[in-house]
């Protein structure tokens, strides 16, 4: 029987209350959102907080709101809510694509976008999605709020720039005109971590050439995006030839490890093939997009 080590439990009633509880209980306290990463780690004693601060009552952080040229997503938005949102599907189909493959429908009822990003697992899909979409993270502390890019947010595996006494409260996604995006993952079975995955976002200029493109890879050793492929695609009209070249560059840019999910060559092959597929789908979605 896997049971966490003993801890004390407190339920926060607001963001300010959560921040006050973090201050009061110090560095041995941890925030729990959906709990589907943290509780398994606590069962295995990989995490051993003295205090667990439950933020599931913070309904103020459960929202998806369009605000001008950006979509604001509250940190406590559940995966299921993201997956089922028509607005998200229309503006950022990459999120819907990714959510379909995150864990399984029952786990998605609990897990949150904020929890996923703060867990910062190298095989976590929404981290790649947010990097590709150029998201910003809104982090609140007792001294106020700060907004950081995903590059600043993501420090390394299981490490983010959210300090112990801070809380990720919101993710902001810029809405670009004539844009499309896509995500595709190869997994061994439902609910498993990715063997590899790729995500892409493409924005077209009025003449149909690529005005902005971002390509991200999951679980195969690439921080940031495939900048070589992005530079190669920029300013050109989308074509199969370019996607093939972008796939080749993605396979070169990644740095996968061999493990039980596959050999290095296989994972590089996936980087290549999945990059082509998501570029193809993102470009065709961008061409169909009616509005920003």
């Amino acid at each position: 029987m896997q049971i966490p080590a003993p801890f004390d439990y407190a339920r926060a009633s607001s963001v300010d209350d959560a921040l006050a509880l973090l201050e009061r209980h110090g560095p041995e306290s941890l925030i729990v959102a959906g709990g589907h990463s943290l509780l398994p780690m606590m069962k295995l004693r990989l995490a051993r907080p003295e205090w667990l601060i439950d933020i599931n009552d913070l309904f103020e952080l459960d929202f998806i709101v369009r605000d001008g040229d950006r979509l604001r997503v509250g940190a406590m938005t559940r995966h299921t809510t993201l997956f089922e949102s028509d607005e998200v599907r229309r503006l950022f189909p990459i999120i819907t694509d990714a959510e379909r493959t995150i864990a399984d429908p029952v786990v998605r009822n609990r897990g949150t976008i904020g929890g996923s990003l703060c867990q910062a697992d190298p095989a976590e899909d929404l981290s790649t999605v947010c990097i590709v979409l150029g998201a910003e993270a809104v982090i609140r502390g007792t001294a106020g709020e700060r907004v950081v890019s995903m590059a600043e947010f993501h420090v390394g595996p299981y490490e983010t720039s959210v300090a112990h006494n801070e809380l990720l409260v919101e993710v902001r996604l810029p809405i670009r005109p004539r844009s499309g995006s896509a995500y595709e993952k190869v997994e061994r079975r439902v609910g498993d971590w990715a063997v590899a995955a790729a995500g892409a976002s493409v924005s077209l200029a009025e003449d149909g050439t690529i005005d902005h493109v971002a390509i991200g890879l999951t679980a195969i050793g690439l921080d940031g995006t495939v900048t070589e492929a992005e530079a190669m695609l920029h300013g050109k009209a989308p074509s199969e030839e370019l996607f093939v070249e972008a796939g080749r560059l993605a396979a070169l840019a990644c740095d996968p490890l061999a493990d039980q999910r596959g050999a290095i060559d296989y994972k590089r092959h996936l980087a290549d093939e999945l990059t082509r597929r998501v570029l193809r789908r993102a470009s065709s979605r961008a061409a169909e997009a009616q509005e920003g």
Partner: peptide
């Protein structure tokens, strides 16, 4: 539906 092995009774 939730997996009750990954929810604390307190939650």
């Amino acid at each position: 539906p939730v997996k009750s092995c990954t929810v604390l009774a307190a939650m």
